[in-house]
Write a protein that binds this DNA or RNA. Structure first.
Lengths: 137, 137
DNA sequence: GGCAGAATCATCCGTTCGGGTGATGCGCGC
DNA sequence: GCGCGCATCACCCGAACGGATGATTCTGCC
């Protein structure tokens, strides 16, 4: 992150130097100071928009970090998470069982434990709750 | 939106005028052009960051804009959306019926239509698909 | 006036889920 | 070695859900 800021700072400095050079070229020309200032303003405003976009979208586009504290606190196991993820994808118990190479009965057991730990009673509620706890994206 | 852009443009123009005035004050002073340019760059970059932040976060922090095109295209009705929203909150058909003052049978009918339009066969799939279509937040 | 789409409700039937209970095996720690 | 937690599986039962079909009412549109 500090490296990123450094790079952006250097880029801005470089742009400033370029602008300064351009200034020396153009002050002897016919353009008025207003136009000159406007161009600088426009360019650096665009630069700022770009920088701001990069900065804000770096955190917004994060690959989603699972809330480990919640999992720890609720005592949710690895296997239960796998079931939960497939659950959120809209699979049936049978399909989940096939995906994880276990019987639907086992899936039911995992789900029952999940319902217990999440304090819900339906799969749709489990999805909603898990999402609100940042256990699911 | 157009009004917003206009306001920002005017703000930038005003800032440019201010800067120009400052320039006339300072060119007779001791400061070198490098410092002057640097200040302009810094100020307008900050302005750009602010504008960019406002622009991106206006859409990101919006109360969620429903994908009207998808609804139109799929032919999903107002009532079906209401059912869909309660569905995503994990309610049962009976609870949804009570919430909307209709019988569970009616809810079932609406859901059947939704499954048809969303091309799914389970409520969890409906939630997932609706979310991916930006019909649900 | 009639037609199309919507919202409402119902019944039947089969599948899926959820709750409860019990059982087995495996690994880990005291 | 014994207990504990985890994962696995099974059975039962009742509730919830999904699919299909049909009916009624109302509204908007041609």
């Amino acid at each position: 992150m500090k490296r990123t800021i450094l790079i952006y700072s250097l880029a801005i400095a470089a742009a400033a130097l370029v602008l300064q050079w351009i200034e020396y070229q153009y002050t002897v020309r016919v353009f008025s100071t207003e136009i000159y200032i406007g161009l600088i303003a426009l360019l650096f405003t665009s630069l700022g928009v770009w920088v701001g976009y990069k900065l804000t979208h770096r955190s917004a586009a994060a690959p989603f970090e699972r809330n480990a504290q919640a999992l720890e606190y609720l005592g949710i196991t690895e296997r239960e998470i796998e079931v939960l993820e497939l659950l959120a994808e809209g699979r049936s118990n049978k399909e989940i069982g096939e995906e994880l190479f276990v019987s639907p009965n086992t899936v039911k057991t995992h789900l029952a434990h999940l319902y217990d730990k999440l304090d819900v009673s339906r799969r749709t509620q489990a999805i909603q709750k898990a999402r609100s706890l940042n256990i699911l994206p």
